[in-house]
Design a binder for these strands. Sequence first.
DNA 1: TCCACTTTCTTTGTAAGCTTAACTAAGAAA
DNA 2: TTTCTTAGTTAAGCTTACAAAGAAAGTGGA
Lengths: 406, 406
Amino acid sequence: MSSSQDTGRSVLRSLNTGAVLRAVVESGPVSRAGIARATNLSAVTVGAIAGELLGQDLIVENGDTDATAGRPGRLLELNSGAYGSIGVKLSDRSVTGVLTDLRSKVLAEASRPLEHPSAEDFVRVLRDLTTSLTADAGMDWDRLLGVGIGLPGVVDRGAGTAVYSPFLQWIDVPVAELAETALGLPVIVENDVNTLALAERWFGRGQGVQDFLLVTVGQGIGLGVVLGGELHGGARGGVGELGHMVVTDADEACSCGSTGCLEAVASEGALLRQSEVLTQRSGSDPVLDMDELYHRAESDPDHADLVDVAGERIGRGVANLINVLSPELVLVRGPGRFEGSRLAARMTESVAHHTFAGLAGRTELRVEHLDDMPWARGAASLVLSELFMSPATAPGAKAMRSGRIQ
Amino acid sequence: MSSSQDTGRSVLRSLNTGAVLRAVVESGPVSRAGIARATNLSAVTVGAIAGELLGQDLIVENGDTDATAGRPGRLLELNSGAYGSIGVKLSDRSVTGVLTDLRSKVLAEASRPLEHPSAEDFVRVLRDLTTSLTADAGMDWDRLLGVGIGLPGVVDRGAGTAVYSPFLQWIDVPVAELAETALGLPVIVENDVNTLALAERWFGRGQGVQDFLLVTVGQGIGLGVVLGGELHGGARGGVGELGHMVVTDADEACSCGSTGCLEAVASEGALLRQSEVLTQRSGSDPVLDMDELYHRAESDPDHADLVDVAGERIGRGVANLINVLSPELVLVRGPGRFEGSRLAARMTESVAHHTFAGLAGRTELRVEHLDDMPWARGAASLVLSELFMSPATAPGAKAMRSGRIQ
DNA sequence: TCCACTTTCTTTGTAAGCTTAACTAAGAAA
DNA sequence: TTTCTTAGTTAAGCTTACAAAGAAAGTGGA
């Protein structure tokens, strides 16, 4: 793991090393011969690369294949505990961090309040959080591969900047640079929903799926797009504003300046506002949160309507995405109260109704639970993803992207 | 151009050959030294690859750089005329074909009626069309790189099949296989809008643009998606059903079985139907085509409304795409009557209104003219695109995709 | 017990491809 | 004519991959 900067090392080897590493990660414990079959590389090459990876402590030998005939193969598997990755989720009031192993298993977690969401404050808190996590997990500092940071808003991952984050009120903040100088570790910044999508791609429902979408439903409505196995970032990283898709003629003003956005007509905030109008008109008790709103919908037809309309609209948005991108899988994740709710049910119906017939049955829709921790865990997987995609450049240095193949 | 199948030849060389070829195509006439700078390859490698390409007749030397100092470089450029590509656009009543050179310049064009859109009939017509085009252009048959076929509907490019084409009433037809055996040439099948998008990417507005969308407005509403410089095909090729996006509460039934689709509320057909209701109600003369409808909208406020609403809705659809994918460029192409029409103007306004503020100014919107010929020309560029992306495998054989890097 | 058989992994030799360094080529300017 | 600068080529060395052959390590039958 020492000499990661040998520029002479060919990109070809790097690609093949990546392929071997991915085979180990994805095909569990596997023999060298098995890797050779999976990657189409020669046994010799696999042997050599496996030797390097063993030397780097990234993989370990662990037991043999039970051979029916012939010499049993020595099983190789990821040495999960050898290195760690730190993931940080930034919201407007707090910073949540985790330290994970190479398999994205959480080894330590912690949270800190963020009084003023200024970049300086954040970096200070980040430094504290990172040292604390490393101590908690009992991990050597130089075994850290890097830090992934997920934050809401438009993020330019290549430049490492927060381009525009309304929640944090950040505009063009060079987050990665600030954090790198403060920590002395490689830092990757990404939109928070994207980090979640990446975690799904490597360790969740998206494993082995080429094209999938992750939709997060909650305070806002977010979207992560994985196409061809890779996260789509878009021009300067501004992807996934599903909350500002328009699927109705209702022209409620949205905070973004447009009208009729999903976020303005079907987000949790929008539902609570709509409920307030209803309860004021009827003189009934006000509804304070979503749990209560779902409960009210069971008895009050007006509230039921309200939820139905919102579900139909969110479903339209999801169906629109399916019609346009035709992914294999759409994963809708929301807080506990969302899964199994009337809102989710209506949404599912609406998706089925509005999906183009020619594409029917081609896309799977899953509605699942979303805790808080995966956000930070997703950010940690940013670093792991870089490792698995281009191990030659990791750890220790920024990804070299010369474009040249040598 | 003879020995294209040496399996021993490393993929590495193939990648670099592609890079050199692309540099020649994209940077016009350029010296070896210029290519080396552009690709980051060494001068030696560029020299060797250039030698191979010269031997294959793919590029030629043509003049020198005007050197201010030092030895002038010998300019290399694509030998456009050396090889040809055939492109075919299939609609329900006719087959249009072109033969282009390597720069996508049309050398010959022809059209044939298609009485019964059966696969057998099509192959027969295709054979006739191909020989006729080749004769017209005075090109040697063995200088043909291949045939690209664009057809409406869901196409599985990898399998070479038309999965589902409502227009043609084709389901799971192995078009590529049928055509390959009939012609003895490599055949690539793709959705027609996608072929158009590919032509833009290589020879049109999309040159040098990483992420862009092509929206075609006409009888239907189509979409081609280019992300990261590559056409996005989606799961089994079903991408781009923008016509079936829902952006309104109007629940007009659509031919696809859903309700409220763009195609049902804002396509040319939908507008004419809506106009019919108006004229019948008011007893005025019926509107027969779009030209007349635009004209009527200038004097009749009801018709103006109708166009305005449709424009607003199409604009919503386009803005939705921008919010979700954040491309650098959205190219909207329609028939002559569309560009500069009231419909286009309203659409543009609507896009601006509904685009998420955080993404503003990041996406360029262009509305331009769309003839008939580009469809077939786009299909021809399918073949050229394969050449530029992986020249080692072309011409003569199906793309080898072992996944192994050697 | 021993020997054939199968499968895994390593060693050895060879070919391909890229890079650097040195060299030749070719024009402009002093 | 000499010097400078840029273009392109040749030579040498390094990395990497493959193929072939050997060594290792089991099973199973005679």
